[in-house]
Amino acid sequence: MTALLPPKARAASPAPSKRPRRAAGRHGSGLSRLGVQALLWVYAALAFGPLVLVLIGSFRPNADILREPVGLPDSLNFDNYARAWETASLSTYFVNSLTITVASVALCVTVSAMAAYALSRWRFRGRALLAALFISGLMIPAKLGLLPVFYMFQSWGLIDNRIGLVLLYAASGIPFSVFVIMGFMRGMPDELEEAARLDGCDEGRMFVSVVLPVMRPALAVATVFQFAPTWNDFFYPLVLMRSDDKYTVPVGLTRFFGEYAADRATLFAGLVIALVPLAVVFALATKHIISGLTAGMSK
């Protein structure tokens, strides 16, 4: 894993190759180009099709689905959604997940940004060791420490407590966030900070009013990449949460799937509800997602 280029630099890098592309890149005949296009559309259908099937199913009455598994809904009716949201108490799980996710992402990105800034701009004894400690977390399967966490939480009264989950998620997101933000800072010139320093800013003020705005692209990547796994996580709440009204969406869904096993329509609607926040994040942040996935690839 090498340095992460700031998105601007990466966006600029493919540009020089644009001109020769026409000449060199496309030496297939028109026919083979058409074939490639067709293959790409086929895979797009494979990637998207299952989600479409779920979406369509969520609008059909259950009896229809059992009679005819593939088919279009007669009308746009939201009965299934109402049932999943109210009766199956997905609303409770949804609010829990949203609160926990937002709080833990905010906590994680804040402490990571501070640490990453200190590690990339200040020199002090133990700096390299500390950076290595954070980054090595990328390779550590943190879930294997769950049992000790369980007993630790038990003695602090954090079992079946949403705050416990927030702290745990924030902690487990630190390695990736620190990695991304440090990589970003490495590529940023420090002139602004120096000017601020000459103007008499102290470290705290400079961080808040100069550094944070500059860091925004990296903070966005860290946020998106922390949001999805936290929203999606299943293992921690499965073990640490006890009461039904504190479940998050994934754990709630396992209960829901047991209870409504025969009611496909409600299950489909529940799955769609669980996917909505991620669809929103995806729509808002595709660019950041792509740059985050390729973080560390550019040399």
Binding site: V111, A115, P148, L168, I174
Partner: peptide
């Protein structure tokens, strides 16, 4: 400043990720 900036992340990460694995 160094402590103030690095300790929050270090405590959180150390206490909930590193210590449990060692434990």
């Amino acid at each position: 400043w160094i402590a103030g900036f690095t300790l929050p992340a270090l405590v959180l990460y150390g206490l909930l990720i590193v210590v449990p694995l060692v434990t």
